[in-house]
Nucleic acid binder design. Structure first.
Lengths: 352, 352
DNA sequence: TTGAAAGCGCTAACAC
DNA sequence: GTGTTAGCGCTTTCAA
């Protein structure tokens, strides 16, 4: 491979020579300029400008500094919710002058652990993740103990002193289910998978609360993956005994349900009323526009990232920092699958 | 900030001591083991295993090596097409033992240039991007000259010797428009924005080819952004003179069109036939399932990433490498918005 | 307030 | 085949 004769890197010593000072002085100026006289600072800054000096990050890291990079781990980028979230995190990071190392855990704890290790070994300044790990059994606690700020999104890791940004899952679900009850439904089933995740668990809680409050019997259908949804619907909706309404616990479940109902020839909301957690991009254009609990992935990512940079900026070690838990609101978007009439997004439909 | 007493990093010299050899020998073993006797190699590997040694990437980079990181720049992660693509790239990178630095250019060339610089200054092993830059006026050419392998996805940068993975845009569009013509339409308009992008340009080309071939007059509606779509549709579809069919140039255009048509009370396919480029996740569940040209974002990302790692592995300098251009196929998915009857995804509908 | 020296962990170049 | 030396660019001491 031929050496390329492009402009060679300008180093701190080039700047020092240009400004007629020691490297150390340049370093001080670059890092905030404490203990450097105004006149020298000015000279150094001019030299930096003139030479186009950019600090070499590898050298800083080698000396034990943190990289100007944050790590982000999401289950997958192929899901709109997570990718929107990642987009927001990345935007905030850029605004703070950081780059973003993004990895996907494929919803697997071992993968997540490996990725955390890789990121830490690259001295990321902070870690933001939608965790698979439920309890701080593994690497995460160690990592935090070693001084890396951590923010979890959408879920929590028990026993970890990380900051958390969550969503009003229970309240959001409660509101949706109450709306179905208001429509007169007595038999409302609740369908979903990944029920051990905090977010899903809380939604089930909200569903249960609303049902109990109305004196109704909760009916929870847990499946082990989205693939099992057509089968369970087939089975449960066969007889005349089936529920008259359904609450789906996330967007994938809603979509799978929609496909299954279409195949089975079940019409919304006549044969079955439906409300789901998570908005769908095209929800209002569907054959029957779907009533949903909307949560903002963008807000989740943005808030989480800002929280992380607060921690990074403060420089306080994670253990000494009080734990922050932010909970973002949800919004019930009433369309037609619940039984409401009227134009899509018609404000009148909300009148109760 | 307190020093943490967790297991301190094990370095190459720890391994050397443990194995009773020089650091250099350990380095050789780690980097492939050339010129090291089998017995010594074995001893060194055992020491590495025993101590859990992980090479320090910052130190390697400082010595001028490439990072085991690739850079990926997409316009945004908030668009399913790009995020699916990013997901695929990241998966491939993981399989090759690399991490992925993802940035979004927000469709702005200046941002893209800055991000390229930041990535290069971190010694990424390669760069994969959906470029905004149309001509290799800027940084990209320099970067390539300096020996960083580059792959562009979905678009090309003129004058750059990068490898490219593209989509059969023209043929795909042609096929869709021919299908509309087959339905008997004579007045078919073509709607979209970002028309200077290669992908969109090629789709327009395909549209034009199909129209000319049938002796029909092309009618191209270019708007400057997706926001202008409702307005132009309002204007153009008002009189009785309007077209009887519409071909939309990307998924955002299709979605905006759908919303606008709904507002205007225009029914598909009775009042207007529609076919679009790019599949929509829920296309088959819409009031009228949409006929689309499907392209695989996953395949685009996967293929591009593999191509990049071929380049990285080969170690040949980019200029000496023959330019590769891969073109992925598209698929016409016939649903109902074009005027075809029958169940959604019904194979019979394709019978011509 | 400024500077000199040492060394972070690694590998290229050159001994032996 | 294996070891020694030097130094990548920066910041942490410590001295002035």
């Amino acid at each position: 491979m031929p050496k390329d004769p492009t402009r060679k890197k300008v180093t701190i010593s080039d700047v020092a020579r240009e400004a007629g000072v020691a490297q150390m002085t340049v370093s001080r100026v670059v890092n905030g300029g404490n203990y450097v006289s105004a006149s020298v600072q000015k000279r150094v800054r001019e030299a930096i400008e003139k030479l186009g000096y950019q600090p070499n990050e590898a050298a800083r890291i080698l000396k034990g500094q943190k990289a100007r990079i944050i790590g982000l781990i999401v289950p997958t980028l192929a899901d709109t919710f997570f990718s929107t979230c990642a987009n927001a995190v990345q935007e905030v990071a850029t605004r703070y002058g950081y780059m973003t190392l993004i990895q996907t855990s494929s919803s697997r704890t071992e993968v997540e652990t490996t990725e955390i290790d890789m990121m830490v070994s690259r001295n990321v300044a902070g870690l933001i993740l939608i965790p698979m790990e439920q309890k701080a059994s593994g690497r995460l606690a160690e990592v935090q103990a070693s001084g890396v700020p951590i923010v979890t999104l959408d879920r929590v890791v028990k026993g970890l002193n990380a900051n958390e940004v969550l969503v009003e899952n229970a309240l959001g679900a409660e509101e949706a289910v109450r709306h179905l009850i208001w429509h007169g439904h007595k038999q409302i089933a609740c369908l979903g998978y990944d029920t051990e995740l905090l977010s899903i668990h809380e939604r089930i809680q909200g569903y249960t609360n609303a049902m109990r409050e109305a004196g109704l019997q909760p009916q929870i259908w847990k499946v082990d993956s989205s693939k099992s949804i057509p089968a369970i619907l087939q089975r449960k909706l066969e007889g005349a005994q089936g529920p008259t309404a359904l609450f789906t616990l996330n967007n994938v479940t809603t979509i799978q349900t929609l496909h299954a109902l279409q195949t089975m020839g079940i019409k919304l909301p006549k044969d079955l009323a439906l409300a789901g957690f998570d908005d769908l991009e095209l929800a209002s254009l569907l054959t029957v526009p779907i009533t949903v609990v909307r949560q903002s992935a963008h807000e989740l990512g943005r808030t989480g990232a800002k929280l992380l940079f607060d921690m990074i900026r403060s420089g306080v070690s994670p253990k000494e920092m009080p734990k922050t838990r932010l909970i973002l609101p949800t919004e019930l978007v009433i369309r037609n699958s619940c039984g409401c009439k009227g134009t899509v997004e018609d404000p009148l439909a909300k009148s109760h």
